[in-house]
């Protein structure tokens, strides 16, 4: 009963906060802009569109054939000396390229269409990345503002079980993020299904394809939750929202841009493996192949000289993410338990 009422209060508190509302609203507006952009930049291959593309392809073929004929005529008018000078020894005008009809594909003249099976996974990644950023900032602010305003102390006067209070707050954040991510993912999927229906195709959506999208959305949600928990944990350790935001900026500046330059200069092997975004991509796209251009290449008779590669799998990325989340959460709990509240 006690924990349930505290959970209810904390969920209400999170939903009532203007910062949370405005930040989520901002993210939704960005997502709407992305969806509108995709809608506008794609077009369904209607018979009229296909006919127009066919006409353009024909016109192109005619143009190119005309140019080729003119070129052949010009070639045949050259003296052997001029021929040798322009085309080289032993060249004959029959060797000039002649465009074949099958070389001109109608697809090259069609406006792009939104292929749900092909293009929607990229949209899921976009959704996950935006929501992960929202989760980090909202999570950090949720606990950071409480510490900063004295609300946390007030709450502890009512519920003097520190770990229970912090855990319940974290649970309220996680459950709210799950609710937000599931809702937006469902709306996102529906929205792009409509876009694909109106401006592209929903063909080849087998149960396997749906399962793959479902799993991708699930991995996206885990990424969102991890970002939220890390933001929450860092702000709780520092007892201020700025602590989490500072840490995030520090990680981006020092460990990404700075580290990338250092790794490049030091010609470190598999440099990309040290950079977080590639682990994120590996998590969402199931794997990421890191190529090592700083090492001697692997030679094979079939493929020639290829740089050595290392694959970051989604399992490896998942374990790394779990370790970071666990470490930050445990540190937040430990400081909550041990430190005086002054």
């Amino acid at each position: 009963m006690g924990t349930v009422s505290l959970f209810k209060a904390e969920t209400r508190r999170l939903a009532k906060r203007r910062f949370s509302r405005y930040f989520v609203l901002g993210a939704v507006l960005v997502l709407v802009a992305v969806a509108i952009g995709m809608f506008v930049s794609n077009e369904k291959p209607t018979p009229a569109v296909i006919a127009q593309a066919q006409a353009e392809a024909d016109r192109y073929f005619q143009e190119q054939t005309g140019y080729a004929a003119e070129e052949k005529k010009r070639c045949e008018s050259l003296t052997p000396e001029q021929m040798k000078q322009q085309y080289g020894e032993g060249f004959t005008c029959d060797q000039l390229g002649q465009l074949q009809r099958e070389d001109v594909q109608i697809q090259d003249f069609m406006p792009s269409q939104f292929d749900f099976r092909e293009n929607f996974p990229g949209m899921v990644t976009t959704l996950a990345a935006i929501l992960a950023m929202v989760a980090f900032v909202v999570g950090a602010s949720f606990i950071g503002a409480e510490w900063n305003s004295g609300g946390m102390m007030n709450l502890l006067l009512w519920r003097p079980r520190r770990l229970q209070v912090l855990s319940t707050k974290l649970a309220a954040l996680v459950v709210s993020l799950i609710g937000l991510t599931v809702t937006l993912s469902a709306v996102w999927t529906g929205l792009f299904w409509v876009i694909a229906t109106m401006r592209g195709t929903t063909a080849k959506m087998t149960s396997g394809a749906w399962q793959s999208i479902g799993l991708l959305e699930l991995r996206g949600m885990v990424l969102v939750l991890a970002a939220g928990m890390i933001g929450f944990g860092l702000a709780s350790i520092g007892r201020h929202t700025a602590m989490a935001l500072g840490a995030a900026i520090g990680v981006i500046v020092v460990f990404q841009f700075g580290l990338a330059v250092v790794l490049q200069v030091a010609r470190v092997r598999f440099a990309e493996a040290y950079l977080l975004p590639f682990w994120g991509i590996a998590w969402l796209e199931k794997e990421w192949e890191v190529l090592d251009y700083n090492a001697p290449c692997d030679f094979s008779a079939v493929n020639g000289c290829e740089p050595p590669s290392m694959v970051i799998t989604w399992q490896m990325a998942g374990i790394a993410m779990l370790a970071v989340v666990g470490l930050v959460t445990m540190a937040a709990m430990w400081t909550m338990r041990k430190r005086d509240i002054t």
Binding site: M1, G2, S5, L6, K8, A9, E10, R12, R13, K16, N154, L155, W158, R159
Partner: peptide, 15 residues
């Protein structure tokens, strides 16, 4: 938060 919201949240937290 308003005064009523503040107290209402505390009331929820304390049952």
């Amino acid at each position: 938060f308003t005064a009523r919201e503040t107290l209402s949240l505390l009331a929820d937290a304390g049952g």
